[in-house]
Design a protein around this nucleic acid. Structure first.
Lengths: 212, 212
DNA sequence: CGACACGTTGATTACGCTCAAAGATCGTGG
DNA sequence: CCACGATCTTTGAGCGTAATCAACGTGTCG
């Protein structure tokens, strides 16, 4: 595996089900962790940093599948290739391991199986939430709910991604994202400090959009 | 469980990993199998008929999560409630069972665990494909790719769902779906026989839209 | 045959995209 | 330390795609 040779290798030291499992690797900002259509025989866990998964259409349109933060597992596929590529959004430490016999239904480490199951159903849930956003919501709602969900998931209001990544996640253009951010701020729903730090001011409204 | 009392109960007779598991129930067209926000402690398998999962926003907007056909497992959730409701699109026979100890990572029937894992990763994959459709495609492409994917999945060109269901799956209105269907036919991409039977005429074009 | 749900088509509107340019922000080197 | 350039973000003007509102077909079943 040539990837393994290009990167810093360290013995893993993370706690919990992943102690002693896999290899820790460091990826620079913008670097590819795995490519679209690459063989999917490994699993990945974010030790630090932020990861995005992306898929390109041949004409250049891009969709972001999801963002992954500290502790998240990613790289789970149905078939034998990755439908989305994974890239380091910031400098990342990633724990890479072979699922091998840990796929549910076979025998293997039960704690890893359980973690994998948990990660997969959570991802399915986020994917469905993402679907609601794209299928039923206006541009303003998409941006607002995105900020809200992210703040809730991370515990703070700091965007690890730029406008283009938000746009490609939300099925909008950067201009529209920017306009909606301005409008949300003008409406007093959020307050921004610079382009990437923000604070939710009217949680009630955003919750109503996300839907109770 | 009141549901069980309202329906025909039969001893299951399906083959494979589900032999001898759960209870078979019949649902009429339009009937609810489980409700949005209902407790999620059961799993479901389509024996015959077609099922859709739907979620409503409080203002009436609706998103269809997915359609399920013969042999498909559905009802898998991350938390303890169903985020989407499930409804019989046609008359359906559904095998209902308690996952109980069959959740991966615990011990239980390994064949059911494997089937559950398979179903969940497949659903995740379809969900990501659905996301691509909503995030990156025009109305014409959405409708075209939908027809193509459905024909490929089912092995024939018959729509189990009406225009409203297609629209709510694709994030469009029924009028737009109807117009796009007319245009696809005018362009010679598909041919319709009545409102629900069709034939793909230009697979190459649809594959290009779905993306190679 | 008539009634009702479902589907199609037309006219107009509006939301988000495109094209364009100006304004921030950040890293780099003089 | 500030100037410079590159990149990212915001804002504006005009356009196009899909939504809305409305009317007209079509198919299905009592």
């Amino acid at each position: 595996m040539s990837l393994l040779e290009q990167h810093t290798l360290e013995r893993p030291s993370s706690p919990e089900p992943f102690a002693g499992v896999g290899v820790r690797m460091t990826f620079a900002r913008g670097e590819e962790i795995y490519a679209q259509d690459e063989e999917a025989d490994l699993l990945y866990r974010v030790v630090s940093g932020t990861v995005r998964t992306t898929r390109f259409l041949s004409d250049g349109r891009r969709q972001i599948g999801d963002f992954y933060f500290q502790g998240d597992l990613f790289g789970v596929e149905c078939g034998d290739t990755h439908r989305f590529a994974a890239e380091a959004l910031t400098t990342c430490e990633i724990l890479v391991f072979r699922p091998g016999s840990s796929i549910p239904g076979r025998d293997g480490d039960a704690r890893i199986q359980a973690a994998l199951w948990e990660a997969t159903t959570q991802e399915l849930e986020r994917s469905r939430e993402h679907l609601m956003l794209l299928g039923c919501h206006t541009a303003l709602e998409r941006v607002g709910v995105f900020l809200f969900a992210l703040a809730r998931r991370r515990g703070h209001g700091e965007l690890a991604m730029g406008r283009q990544d938000m746009a490609d996640y939300l099925g909008l253009t950067i201009e529209t994202v920017s306009r909606m951010l301005s409008q949300l701020q003008a409406d007093g729903v959020v307050q921004f400090f610079g382009a990437r730090r923000y604070r939710i001011m009217r949680q009630d409204r955003l919750e109503a959009w996300a839907d109770a």
